[in-house]
């Protein structure tokens, strides 16, 4: 590693062939990230007696944990599916029609909404959509009685609604770069070559945006699938979701016959999340080819 680490003539300190400058990063990253993740994977294959077993994974796919996965995947998919197109359209108009100041304001607001949501978001909705909440009352005034059908934010539907609130801003954030990478030259060249608006979109615009759209969808799925804070604040164990089940096992709430079940659930989550995030990263990298040129 060290020998091929650096090309000849590199002019950074100490000895040019050393990886010393990257060492603090590698050590901290290794210790605080790679180590716990590897250990998690290792322990997930351990029985209570510290022998190798697949039993944890077996249990992970049985009741009630299997429905946790199903619900979490459904929540991730639905919240992504509902927000992807509106988010993409909003991103399109903001990026193409907005002033740079507007773009900056919206992108930082989205940053707040998408990242620091969590618990405050849950309480915000609790008050807005509670029985006495303003939104509930307003909806009732126009003839929609949320509570007629025993609605509660602590249900799958309730969570889905709240999730939209951070998924939509996330979609706008993730998809905007793709929009801004559409060059004006391409529309103009297409027009000049005789394409009308529709033909431009069908032959050039949509094919160019599609990979980024799919990538954004995958990232949204991963975000909805693994979200913990909001669900934890809104539900009381009535909606089985994998992150909550893992949290419960971690707190020792369940007198589990298998001490390492939570680790196996975590590993399965990593695998599912990786199935979405890795293609996302690969597509982003591919798309960067024409985004930077």
């Amino acid at each position: 590693m060290e020998k091929r680490g650096v090309r000849k003539g590199a002019s950074f300190p100490i000895s040019p062939s050393s990886i010393l400058p990257a060492l603090p990063f590698l050590l901290i990253f290794g210790f605080f990230f790679l180590f716990p993740i590897s250990r998690l994977i290792y322990v997930s294959f351990m029985s209570n007696e510290n022998t190798f077993t697949l039993g944890n994974f077996q249990t992970a796919f049985e009741k009630p944990y299997n429905s946790g996965f199903v619900n979490s995947i459904k929540l991730g998919l639905l919240s992504a599916a509902i927000t992807a197109i509106p988010g993409a359209v909003a991103a399109y108009f903001i990026e193409t029609r907005g002033s740079s100041r507007l773009k900056r304001t919206i992108s930082s607001m989205n940053g707040v909404l998408a990242n620091t949501g969590g618990v405050p978001l849950a309480f915000m909705f609790t008050s807005a959509l509670g029985i006495q909440g303003f939104l509930t009352q307003a909806l009732k005034a126009v003839g929609i009685d949320l509570y007629a059908n025993s609605f509660s934010l602590g249900t799958f539907t309730g969570l889905l609604i709240v999730y939209l609130y951070f998924q939509l801003p996330l979609m706008i954030i993730v998809f905007s770069p793709a929009i801004s990478s559409l060059r004006r030259e391409w529309v103009e060249a297409a027009t000049n070559l005789g394409a009308n608006n529709l033909q431009y979109w069908l032959r050039i615009g949509i094919p160019l945006l599609l990979p980024s759209f799919l990538a954004s969808f995958l990232l949204l799925f991963a975000s909805g699938f693994s979200a913990y804070a909001t669900a934890n604040a809104l539900t009381v164990g009535n909606v089985p979701l994998t992150p909550l089940q893992i949290g419960g096992l971690l707190d020792g709430n369940v007198s589990a016959a298998q001490l390492n079940l939570g680790k196996a659930l975590g590993v399965v989550m990593i695998v599912i999340s990786a199935c979405a995030v890795i293609p996302y990263l690969l597509i982003q990298r591919r798309v960067a080819r024409w985004q930077t040129r």
Binding site: G5, V6, A222, I246, G266, I270, S273
Partner: peptide, 27 residues
């Protein structure tokens, strides 16, 4: 330095995106 380590470190830096925070916390 244009180090070949670049690709490795670029890749590593993205890895936390792949891992759900809940799983990371357990680890």
């Amino acid at each position: 330095s244009n180090s070949k380590l670049r690709e490795l470190i670029d890749g590593l830096s993205l890895l936390p995106l792949v891992i759900p925070v809940v799983a990371f916390a357990v680890g």
